[in-house]
Structure formats: C-alpha cells, structure tokens
Design a binder for these strands. Structure first.
Lengths: 343, 343
DNA sequence: GTGAAAGCGCTAACAC
DNA sequence: GTGTTAGCGCTTTCAC
C-alpha cells in the first residue's frame, strides 16, 4: 500500500507538502505540485479514506435506514426508484451511501447509535415514518443531520422532511371516484402506525365528508404493503352484505392484490368495483385493466431528500424544514365509469 | 464526543485496558471489565469506527457495484430481491453495505480504485458481468476480494462467481416450448455484451439444434432490459412475413413489453404467440395471462454471493470458485398450448 | 513555499 | 492483569 510518506520520499519533499498537493493548497509551487502529482500517478497513490476521515471528522458517507421489516419495502417496486433518486444526487455530490437494515426494534437503535456515535456517517436518510418513532427521537436529541422521507408527527416539528401532501393526494383520489358517480367508497389502508396511512385516511374521510357521503367503518380495512393484504381486504369487502362500488387503495401492490382477487372471483373492474391507488409504479400501468394511481414523484422524493441532507451537512441555509413533492393523479381504466352507479 | 481516553480517565485505568474490555480480551479481571463497561454505558461511549479501521486495516464494509447504467437495474424488480439477499446475509455477519454507482466507463474504474486503494471496503460484489469487463481485470490484478453475480468470461477463470446455469435455463425454457408443439421459436435477447445474454442465447440455440429445428436470424432480436425493448422487439417480429409461434424472452420486464404490445395489437397469448421468460419476478405471475418464467433464485443469488465474499475476506477455505444456484421453470398460461401449432 | 511536529482515536507489542 | 509506548495515514498549526 503506497502512502503519503512513500510519495514524499520519492519526490524528495515532506509528507505535508504531498498532503497539500492532494488538497490543492494555494501556496504550493506549480513545479512541486506537478512533480508530486506525476509521482502519485506513477506509484498509483490513493489517499486512505479512513485516515482522512479520522482527522477530518467527516466520512463523506450517508446512511439509508431501511424500515423494518425491510422485506415489504424491497417487494414494493417504488423502493428501487426512491433509491435511484437518492443515489443519483449523492453520487453527484461525491458522497457514498451506506445501506442499513435493522432486524428488531432494539437493534434499530443500536445500529443507528453505532453509525452516529461511531462517526460512521455524516448523515442519515430515514425511509418511512411511524407515529412516535423512537429513531427520530434519537436523532433529534443528538442533533444529528438527518432527513425523513415522509412526515414526522407533531412531536417532531423540527425534523427535516421530504414528503407528499398525502392528505390532499387521498382527497384528490377520492374526489375523482366521487366525480365518477360513486357514493359508496371504501378504503384499503396500510399499517396504522405509519403517518402515511394516517394522512391518506384523513384525505379520504375529508373528501367523503365534503361530498356529504358517509364513511362506514366496515369499508375501511387496514393491512400491510403486500399483495396478499389487498387480496384479504378484497375478500372481506366483497363478502359484506352492503358493498362499496369503489375503493381507494393505499399502494399499487396492494391494489394489484385486490384486482387479482376480483378477477379470480369473476368480478370486472371498473364495472363491479372501481379502484384508485398510490405510487404509480410501472405495474399499475401494466395491469389489466391499468390502475388509476397517484404519482407521488418517487425519484424526486429520493433526490430531494439527499439534496436536503447534504445542505444540512454542509451547513448551508435551509429555508424550509418540510419540502412537499407534488403529486398527480393518473387516471386509467380501473376508475373510469362507463355507467355511473347509484346506491 | 467521548473517547477511549475519557473512559480510561473516568475508570482510573489506562486506555489499553479499555480497548481490551471492548474487544473482550481474555485476561482482564472481571471487576475492571464490569466497571469499565458500566462507565462506558453511563458516558454513552461508542468506538470510533474510522480510528478502528485505520489500525485494524479492515472496514467491515462491502461494496455493491451497480452496473452502468444503473437505471435499468433499478427498474428491474429483481434487483430489490437481489439486494435483500445480499443485505440479509451481510447484516447478519455484521458487515455494512456501500452502494455505489458509476456514471461513465472511466468513472467506473476511478470509483473502484478509490474504494480498493483507499481501503474503503473489504470486498466488492459485482452485479452483472460483461464480456471483457475491465473492472474484473482491475480487481483480479490486485487480488482484491470480490465476487461476481453472473459468469466471468474465459479470460477470468479464477474470478469467484455466483451464477445460474443460464445455458441450461434457456435450454429448458426452449425445450418447454418445443414440447408444447412449437417449431418456430424466436429469441428476444438483452445487451449482447453481457455474458447473461450470451449464455441464454446458447441454451436457446442448443435446444433448437437438438430438436432439429432451425434458428432464423430475423427471429433473434437484441435489446435492453426494458419494457420498451420488448415492445420494439414484438413490433419487429410481428411485422415479419414469416413469424415465429413462440418466443423465449431474456427477462420478465421485456416479456411484459412484448405481452403488452401484443395485447394492444389484438393478438392473444398464448394462442397467437407463446412466451417464456426469465427471473420470475412478481410481475410475471400477475400479468394477464400470467407469464411462464424461469425462477433463478434471485434472493439466494444475493445471499450466496455475500456469504462467499465474506468467506474469502475471512480467509476461510473456498471449495469452488463458481457456485451455481439452481433454476426452475415455472409454467403459466403464457406458454400452454391448447392446440399445438404446426408450421 | 516548505518542513517538523503534534495529534485524530484506536490497537498491539512489550514490559512488569 | 494492566500500563507504557509506538504507530496506523493523514492534516494542520507553527516555524523558517
């Protein structure tokens, strides 16, 4: 392994001079600089990252903290897109990304403690936000540079967030169904401890209320971000004596489960049941029928989060503690009523 | 930031004793150990990762080198599953994962040089293998611990690989179509510089040859791992005066593009064209009709690669330089002939 | 402009 | 069992 000393010796200068050449120190003569650079090239010198960060106290590395259980996330295709957004931005800025997954709740805190207190990374990006998230508490207490993709609950007002307006998004989705003539609309939600589930539920309820429609608790089903979850929700809802004519579904993968179950049972979408969901992954366009979905700007969510985090780390001024990425409802066949239904 | 010295001072021992306690050195008295541990707990001590790796010359970090362009990979849903396999195993072993993407070819070498020569990571996992890959040369020359997910070409015999038997997999897929009565079978391939494309092409050709069927060059189309690529391939093939009755497609996403195009044009699958593809992502089961696909054990591919790499790093004996993960053809509606066709 | 020296936080001989 | 010392590869005052 060739070190700064080896270069110094070969160039007949001191280690500090070599160090200065590497970091483009202003008052270093062009000659020495050129000579040292040539020798570095010849000897294949590369600075030792660990030694550098030991003294500089920065790592030029960010951590991505995967939600637990990570399985769901990976299965959800929009994760790849999110990752791509994060990676593009941070690579461009010269930062590396560390991917970490925790297994248990305790392990989650331990992992982040190791990264934060062990000065392993300069900042973290949190994916998915739960109500009363202990991780957010931990990071907040220590003032560690971090940004959340999602919304922090009210006890964490000063947490940096990149999020969608999920209340509005769900409102829009529900309004759309109402505009198609539906009056009996159900909601298939995700895990109740996620702020995401909570927000979308609010938007759904708000739209119903504004339209003077009543929400019925048996038309609201909670589950996971998994296909099976959609399948189960569908089974339950279709077994009700009084069924909704349309469904707002928390996630495309879940909607796919609903769609699949309906098809198996011989129901037609949108004729028997209309569907609108969220995230607009490739899958939703490819389903048959194609699923109407709210595009949440996944790539931009990741890209912006990474950008915001770097701004904090580099102590640049941050104007807003919460950045809202715009959403857009993409209407497809799954929610277009040919003949609007009446209750 | 609380360091080993602070603990030493507070406990009235020397820094080395604290270091020994941290690393569970055998000959340290239970009393001091307990006392030091208690104080560490109280003061919230966590070892500085950088300082530790500077002296130990290990980082307990592995790099995942994303293929370029990474976009394709991310869009391909099986990437998430692969990542999950890698992450599960390495997290279990106490290693962190660094995710890196390069932009240009030169940048690719620079990136890996920085990681390798800068002692940033202990090993790398390469995703996707190209013919004559300069990265593999680079890593090989320096004897740097690395594992390739895929097959290295013949000039890199000693590269560690975790792979499928892609020749056999494509052979199986093609045989299946032949057994369904097809005699005119086309192949939609991926980028020609990937060993993967090459291997699957070989298997396809071999199956045709064994069955005494002739391969026709206009029935073989190369593209990317993208849906649009499948769409284009479909357009081309369906515009031929003499068309195949079945298609082997390099990847599920591409097959999806083919399927989608066919549906748009009013063709029926499998009646007008049968399809078999590879990877068996969730999508293939969900398509209509569901797509027959070769399951390549994606999770296991990632898990095993990570395991093998750690074995190398820890200098444990490695019995085989190439581990083959078994594949399995999952037959679905897209390739089941009700009425076998004759040319 | 460049060199000498100290130190980042930790580990690992070598003493005793 | 535990302390002392040197040093991992680098940066950064402080001299000159």
């Amino acid at each position: 392994m060739v070190t700064i000393k080896d270069i110094a010796k070969a160039a007949g200068v001191s280690p500090s001079t070599v160090s200065r050449v590497v970091s483009n120190h202003p008052r270093i003569s062009k000659e020495t600089s050129d000579k040292v650079k040539r020798i570095m090239e010849e000897m294949g010198y590369h600075p030792n990252v660990m030694a550098k960060s030991l003294v500089s106290k920065t790592t030029r590395t960010l951590a991505i903290l995967l939600p637990r259980p990570a399985e769901e996330m990976f299965q959800d295709f929009f994760f790849g897109e999110l990752l791509r957004g994060i990676l593009t931005q941070s690579t461009r800025a010269g930062y590396d990304m560390l991917l970490t997954a925790a297994t248990s709740e305790q392990d989650e805190i331990d992992t982040v403690a190791r990264l934060v207190l062990g000065r392993r990374v300069d900042g973290v990006i949190l994916l998915s936000s739960r109500v009363n998230d202990p991780l957010i508490d931990y990071l907040n207490e220590r003032d560690f540079p971090s940004v959340l993709i999602g919304r922090a609950d009210s006890s964490h007002e000063n947490m940096l967030c990149v999020d969608n307006d999920n209340v509005q998004a769900a409102f829009d989705a529900t309004r759309h169904l109402i505009s198609q003539g539906h009056e009996r609309i159900g909601f298939v939600s995700g895990p109740p401890n996620l702020t995401l589930s909570h927000d979308r539920m609010q938007g759904y309820l708000k739209a119903l209320e504004e339209a003077g429609l009543k929400a019925r608790s048996e038309w609201i089903v909670e589950g996971e971000f998994l296909q099976e979850s959609g399948y189960r929700a569908m089974s339950f809802i279709m077994s009700l004596p009084e069924r909704p004519t349309a469904l707002v579904v928390i996630d495309d993968v879940v909607a796919f489960g609903v769609l699949r179950g309906l098809t198996e049972l011989g129901y037609k979408v949108p004729k028997d049941l209309s569907i609108v969901s969220f995230n607009n992954i490739t899958l939703s366009e490819l389903a048959s029928p194609p699923i109407s979905s709210v595009d949440i700007g996944t790539y931009q969510l990741g890209y912006t989060a990474s950008q915001l985090l770097l701004r904090i780390i580099q102590e640049e001024p941050v104007h807003q503690r919460r950045i809202v990425i715009p959403h857009k409802l993409v209407v497809r066949d799954s929610s277009i009523s040919i003949a609007p239904k009446r209750s």
